[in-house]
């Protein structure tokens, strides 16, 4: 059995409700979906039992009615798991994972600025990456936000 399949089996054994939500796509690539209430325990399991000690980055997604986040985690040996979760768009409350990964600060600030997540637990600090005088309620990465004058040239 290859490594990623081992991880997949162990993960679904520990959390039976994830049974159909974990896919070992190819070598070193696992994609998993988890509902946000269960997110913390799955994350802790992955960090402590499966040794996913690196947070590569966090991707925010505009999924229409919800805002999704993918936590891209990795082990020291090169295995990755892409843990996807989502929160409702009207109340996009997210708990910070800085306690597990200090480097999450930059990624979480990015989620705040560009997608409008409400991340709880961030320390005081400068915003990133937008400017201080960026207007409120303008979240550039949301699908309904259009930059002015955007009319892309057609490719050949």
């Amino acid at each position: 059995m290859t490594n990623e399949e081992t991880v997949q089996q162990q993960l679904t054994a520990a959390f039976p409700f994830l049974a159909s939500a974990v896919r070992a796509v190819r070598a070193r690539r696992i994609f998993a979906d988890v509902e946000y209430p269960h997110f913390k325990e799955v994350l802790e399991y992955l960090i402590r039992e499966q040794k996913f000690v690196n947070l590569c980055t966090m991707t925010g997604l505009d999924e229409g009615a919800t805002l999704g986040v993918i936590y891209h985690l990795a082990t020291m040996e090169g295995m990755t798991v892409n843990l996807h979760t989502h929160v409702p768009k009207e109340n996009p409350l997210l708990q910070s994972v800085m306690a597990y990964f200090p480097s999450a600060e930059a990624y979480e600030r990015e989620l705040k600025d560009l997608l409008g997540f409400n991340v709880q637990g961030l320390p005081e600090g400068n915003r990133y990456p937008l400017t201080d005088d960026w207007p409120d309620n303008e979240f550039p990465l949301r699908k309904d936000w259009k930059p002015k004058w955007a009319s892309p040239e057609e490719g050949k």
Binding site: A106, G125, N126, R127, Y128, P129, L130, T131
Partner: peptide, 9 residues
């Protein structure tokens, strides 16, 4: 040190 990024965004 207080780091501020974003100037090249």
């Amino acid at each position: 040190v207080d780091i501020r990024l974003g100037y090249n965004h």
